[in-house]
């Protein structure tokens, strides 16, 4: 059987999306995304530009927001609170992993 091979693309900070693309790719309506922008849960790359563009991390946040909103029926302010707490947990986990990597094992 002939198995096809596809190249996976890096999903990183170099990618940028318009608000419409963000809505399409996250499944979250533009109006709801605007609320997240208002609460600064999602921040455009250059807030002064007329057509705002968003980094790839914003897409990750928007997808997470969409999941949390639909799974827990959260309103905008609860959603932003949940997102900010999850972000803090994620940062702490990263720091914990960094410390764990630098912490030597016991060798006898």
């Amino acid at each position: 059987m002939n198995i096809e091979i596809y190249q996976a693309e890096w999903f990183d900070e170099h990618q940028q999306f318009s608000l419409a693309e963000l809505a399409d790719l996250s499944g979250m309506p533009e109006a709801d995304l605007r609320q997240l922008i208002e609460y600064a849960a999602i921040v455009p790359v250059d807030p002064d530009k007329v057509e705002a563009m968003f980094g790839a991390e914003c897409l990750v946040t928007a997808r997470k927001a969409q999941r949390l909103r639909s799974d827990f029926d959260l309103d905008a302010s609860s959603l932003v609170l949940a997102l900010s707490l999850l972000e803090r947990i994620s940062e702490l986990e990263k720091r914990l992993q960094a410390l764990g990597a630098q912490f030597p094992k016991i060798h006898r």
């Binding site: 198995i3 096809e4 091979i5 596809y6 190249q7 996976a8 890096w10 992993q97």
Partner: peptide, 12 residues
């Protein structure tokens, strides 16, 4: 079923 090619450079 298919294969996904991952270039070098991935991290956690």
């Amino acid at each position: 079923m298919f294969k996904a090619r991952i270039a070098k450079g991935a991290s956690e």
